[in-house]
Amino acid sequence: MAMADGWQIIQDNLDAFLAAAGVTVEVAVFGLALGFAGGVLLALSRLSSFKPLSWIATIYIEIIRGTPLLIQIFFIYFGFGAISPLLNFDALTAGILALGLNSAAYQAEIIRGGIESVPKGQMEAARSIGMTRMQAMRHVILPQSFRLMIPAMTNEMVTLIKDTSLVSTITVVELTFVGKQLTSRYLEAVPILGFVALIYFVMTFATSRAMRYLEHKYRIPGYGEDE
């Protein structure tokens, strides 16, 4: 019976699935973290009054958003090594790097949007009481904008978690890679890929719930949609 067989395959390979899920989580977490760090830098560059910096950030963001992620992954894995041996990354590093550099462009736009949606008077009030631009950013603008960007950030996180499946193409042994491997071994696509999809869903669902919790926890009383 196919169902029983399917269940048996999953049970037999549970360790492999879990190990692969661990790699997926690793790629996603490091990719998002790298993307966040890069995103903050890019967003601040774009908003900078020093024009060349703003242009470089804009060009970077446009190129990343205008080309396929899969090509970016191939480029970093196969292409960078050709440019310099120093840039010869293993598959996992290349995968994390590609996702991180890609996500940085999207996160930059989310962060920029968040910063720009903080009312202008907030910066003026901070500056006119003697705070430096950096202090105002750090203590007034960013704390408010992070709260405002949670919904868009949730979207980006869920997208990136799903996009980690693309690094299977450069032989990172993550969920999709293992799913494909087991499918070709057992020729039982439905239960195996169904289980793989279920694991992705658990990850994305948990992420969006956690983000919703954060949104609620860090809501500003009397500000926005609460009470």
Binding site: S128, V140, Q144, I220
Partner: peptide
């Protein structure tokens, strides 16, 4: 200089994410 000649705005411009007390403490 600005910290010695502070400004009060038409639209108050209190820091929205901070309590009244923290608004004053920040600067």
């Amino acid at each position: 200089v600005r910290s010695h000649m502070v400004m009060v705005f038409q639209s108050y411009n209190l820091f929205l994410h901070l309590t009244a007390k923290k608004n004053i403490m920040l600067a």
